[in-house]
Amino acid sequence: MVKYILQRILLAIIVLLGSCFLVFVLLRVFTPDPSVGEGGAGKYATSEQRKAWRDARGLNEPLIIQFTDYIKKVVTGDLGKSYKTRANIAKEMSDRLPVTIELALFSLILSSVFGMLIGVAAATKKDAFTDRICMFFSSIGMSLPTFWFAILLVDFFAGRFHILPSGDIVDSCYTVEKTTGFYFADTLISQNYKAFLSFLRHLILPTISLMLSSVAVFSRITRSSVLDVLKKDYVKTAKSKGINESKVLIHHVLKNALPPVVTVIGLQFVTFLGGAVLIESIFSWPGIGKYLLDATLNSDFPVIQATVFMVTILTVFTNLIMDIMYAILDPRIRFCRKEANR
């Protein structure tokens, strides 16, 4: 087990460095000279001034040296400065990353709970009306464009009926003291309950938009996994012993149907980090998705590089945890590895 975990960690580091290097090189080779653009050496700068601007940022060094310098700085917590706003990227990240993670986590918890409930309901009533309705709506959920659905929600709840806010993270009349960076925790720690309720109200529409397709994915995977387990002999034996249906479902079926669903939890978290770009831009949610989009529209390369790096760390880390959890939940994986090692 320890060897397996070490292998996964090594692989994660290779992938992390590889993807960071790839983006680093491609951004420098294929994009126009940053000294010319906005935030560069200036519109009327001479070629000497441009060279000096590039020299000051180490952009004239060979790529491999630039990359090792960058990694050294990243390790010390320095992610550089934005070309456009000249703001410290690490500071921006520490403000924005928790906000995105918060949105992704809320969506993940709700979508996995709803999805699993729907999946179990559909599987236990296979081919019945409930099953068909669940599967039909899951197909619709997977086909609805998230951003369109979000716009419709905003139009309906904020534009027409003014029930929920359409943007931002808390009402502007509240100031939240930052301790952890997570609004959910910070509002509670500072006992600012009004701000906490305001945060929850602002969270509703982005969460619903983000979890839409995910509920569909969870329900489908849970349904298929539960159906698979329901066919197994031990379930038939338990049923033939006269054990209560719900007991069989909880103790025998769900326990064994869980591992594939756990893998999907990790995948969905990663998907949410991506979906955040769209949702954050619609709801003016001040997370890293919006940060990346603004940087892309302004060709602000240090910000793009840093955002990609941070999201890759999150993705690789999530995948690593999922791999380990999967091995813990499913003893066959551990066993297979032990056998292979012998």
Binding site: L11, G18, S19, L22, V23, L26, L27, F30, L293, V316
Partner: peptide
């Protein structure tokens, strides 16, 4: 490993990064 690198970013984020390049 190259495929792992491509998979290490959420697809829409990767697409946006490629578009940026």
């Amino acid at each position: 490993r190259f495929m792992d690198i491509l998979l290490s970013l959420p697809s829409i984020l990767l697409a946006i990064t490629i578009m940026c390049i």
